[in-house]
């Protein structure tokens, strides 16, 4: 049913640390791999080795430049996938009931055998978390690796989303954001985790941790005065060399 269930006590989701993400795209690759080989229709590519490659991905990494009013610009890598919103607008617009939010843990899923591929859920999502697969004609989205996290055939350390398991810099965390004593909830409280586009009223479960403030460069270097490399007064041998070279054809004036 596309009516949203009452808010669940358990809210499984991701916490993404924008301070530690190095933008390596390993999460993108592991997500594509796992979700092509397992649950649901594979994530197809079109013209993969041609001039205009394009394909379905459930997780993509953007990179942004942020310019403070004073000081250096920062480059911030920004992974983005489904935020498993509490008020998920993608669920209520679905005409067939294919799109649903699980009452037990809050994961938003698509029942692919009911999906007519109208694309309305992708229109309703402000985050671009849903992509219509060009080959299968059904809507694909992050499942929070529902086929891993409860999978008792996997070793316990693998029972987390593929992107989290893969991340080499520890920038992705998985857990229950409905439990305020969980590791992820504590991390959000400690680091000031935030929502994307809060004004859209979607109440995302996934949170983002802001980059930590950058170290300040020291204002002076005690050795600097002794290391001045260039004679700017133009006397002696250096002065003569400067004049001689400048006088040659094509020399700097």
């Amino acid at each position: 049913m596309t009516q949203l269930p009452p808010p669940s006590a358990k809210k499984l989701g991701l916490v993404i640390d924008l301070d530690t993400c190095v933008g390596c795209h390993a999460c993108v690759v592991s997500c594509k791999g796992w979700n092509t080989e397992n649950y649901g229709a594979p994530l197809s590519d079109q013209d993969a080795y041609g001039a205009n490659p394009s394909g379905t991905f459930l997780n993509r990494v953007h990179s942004y430049e942020v310019q403070p009013e004073q000081g250096e610009a920062q480059l911030i890598h920004f992974p983005k996938s489904c935020l498993h919103c509490e008020d998920a607008p993608c669920v209520t617009v679905c005409p067939t009931g294919a799109s649903y939010k699980r009452a037990e843990d809050g994961i938003v899923l698509v029942n692919e055998s009911d999906c007519i591929g109208c694309g309305l859920c992708a229109w309703a999502c402000p985050y671009g978390a849903r992509e219509l697969d060009a080959k299968e004609g059904v809507m694909k989205k992050c499942t929070l690796c529902v086929d891993r996290i409860y999978n008792e055939n996997l070793p316990e350390e693998d029972r987390q989303p593929a992107c989290v398991r893969t991340c080499p810099s520890g920038a992705r965390h998985f857990g229950d954001l409905g439990d305020e004593n969980s590791d992820v909830s504590k991390l959000v409280a400690e680091r000031g985790g935030f929502d994307l586009m809060p004004e859209q009223g979607t109440k995302p479960v996934n949170k983002y941790l802001p980059p930590r403030p950058k170290d300040e460069m020291p204002e002076f270097d005690v050795l600097a005065p002794y290391l001045e490399p260039i004679a700017s007064d133009g006397k002696g041998f250096v002065g003569w060399l400067d004049k001689a070279l400048s006088a040659m054809p094509g020399g700097a004036k």
Partner: peptide
């Protein structure tokens, strides 16, 4: 608001994901 990075400064898309 889309990136939540407005508290640092002006945000510009530097490199797309693909």
């Amino acid at each position: 608001t889309a990136t939540g990075l407005g508290h640092i400064g002006k945000v510009r898309a530097f490199e797309p994901p693909h």
